[in-house]
C-alpha cells in the first residue's frame, strides 16, 4: 500500500527535524558548559570592560564607520559622474580606479596607506595610522559605491531627463534637481548594505596599531583577551557589533519593502 503524498511529506519533515534535535542534544550533552561559561561569559571580566567598551570602543567604531562612509560616498559620486561622462578619458580613469580598488583586499590597502605611504612620501596622515587607515577605507568603499550610484543614476527613467531638458534646464541642474534625488532613493538599500560592511571592515584598522584612545571594538576585544586570558571580551564586542548592524539590516529590509510598495 502506497502512502498518501501528505503523509510522505510529514514523514520527511519529521526526519529532518529529528536530525536537528539529535545535533542539538549532542551539543548540549557533549559540551563542558562550565568551561564555556568561564571562557565566554565570565561576568567579572564583562564588568571590567564596562564602560570603556561603549564609551571608547563602540564610539570609535561608529566614528570610523561614519567617516569612511561619508568620505566614500562623496568620492563615489565623483567617480559615478566620471563614469557617465561624455569624455572618454574620465570614463577610463574612473573604470581603472574602480577595478583597482575593488580588486584589492581592504586590509592590503589599509597597511599600504598606514605604513607604506607615510614612509614613501614623507607624509604625516591626520590621526596617525588610524587616520591613514580610514582614508584607505574611503578609497576602497568609494569604488564599490560608485558602481551602485552609477546604476542608480541610470535607473532613473530617460523621460525624466528629457522633461528637464525640454524645460531648458542645464545638464548640471538636471542632474542636481531631477536625476540625483531620484537616483539616491533607488540606491538607499544597497548603500545601507555598504554601511554594514564598513562597520565590520573598521575592525581591520586594528591591524595597523592604535593609541589607547583610538581603540575600536575589535582591538578592544583583542586587548581584553590578552589582559584577562579569557575570550569573554570577544563575545562582548561581538554582541556590540550585532547591536549596531542588525538594526541597520532591518532598516534595509524595511526600505526595500517600502520601495516595492511604491513601485506598484
Amino acid at each position: 500500500m502506497s502512502l498518501r503524498r501528505t503523509t510522505k511529506r510529514r514523514l520527511r519533515h519529521g526526519a529532518l527535524y529529528g536530525v536537528l534535535v539529535v545535533a542539538a542534544l549532542a551539543v548540549v550533552l557533549g559540551a563542558d558548559w562550565e568551561a564555556v561559561k568561564v571562557n565566554f561569559f565570565d561576568s567579572e571580566t564583562w564588568q571590567a570592560l564596562w564602560p570603556d567598551i561603549i564609551l571608547t570602543a563602540a564610539k570609535n567604531t561608529v566614528k570610523y564607520t561614519v567617516l569612511a562612509f561619508a568620505g566614500g560616498i562623496a568620492l563615489a559620486l565623483v567617480l559615478a559622474l566620471m563614469k557617465l561622462s561624455p569624455l572618454r578619458g574620465y570614463r577610463y580613469l574612473a573604470t581603472i580606479y574602480i577595478e583597482f580598488f575593488r580588486g584589492l583586499p581592504a586590509l592590503v590597502v589599509i597597511i599600504v596607506m598606514a605604513l607604506g605611504v607615510p614612509l614613501a612620501f614623507q607624509w604625516q596622515p591626520p590621526g596617525g595610522t588610524v587616520g591613514a587607515g580610514i582614508i584607505a577605507l574611503i578609497l576602497v568603499s568609494s569604488a564599490y559605491m560608485a558602481e551602485t550610484l552609477r546604476a542608480g543614476i541610470q535607473a532613473v527613467p530617460k523621460g525624466q531627463r528629457e522633461a528637464a531638458q525640454s524645460l531648458g534646464m542645464s545638464g548640471f541642474w538636471t542632474m542636481v534637481t531631477v536625476v540625483l534625488p531620484q537616483a539616491i532613493r533607488i540606491v538607499i538599500p544597497p548603500l545601507t548594505n555598504e554601511f554594514i560592511l564598513l562597520v565590520k571592515d573598521t575592525s581591520l584598522l586594528a591591524f595597523v596599531g592604535m593609541q589607547a584612545n583610538q581603540v575600536d571594538l575589535t582591538s578592544f576585544g583583542q586587548q581584553g583577551l590578552v589582559t584577562y586570558a579569557n575570550a569573554s571580551p570577544l563575545i562582548a564586542i561581538a554582541l556590540v557589533y550585532l547591536i549596531i548592524s542588525i538594526p541597520a539590516s532591518q532598516l534595509v529590509a524595511y526600505l526595500e519593502r517600502r520601495q516595492m510598495r511604491a513601485a506598484r
Binding site: P157, G159, Q160, E162, A163, A164, S166, T177, V178, P181, Q182, R185
Partner: peptide, 11 residues
C-alpha cells in the same frame, strides 16, 4: 513640450 508619459518629477 508635453510627453505621452507626462514625465512629471515624482519627487
Amino acid at each position: 513640450m508635453v510627453f505621452q508619459q507626462f514625465n512629471l518629477f515624482p519627487h
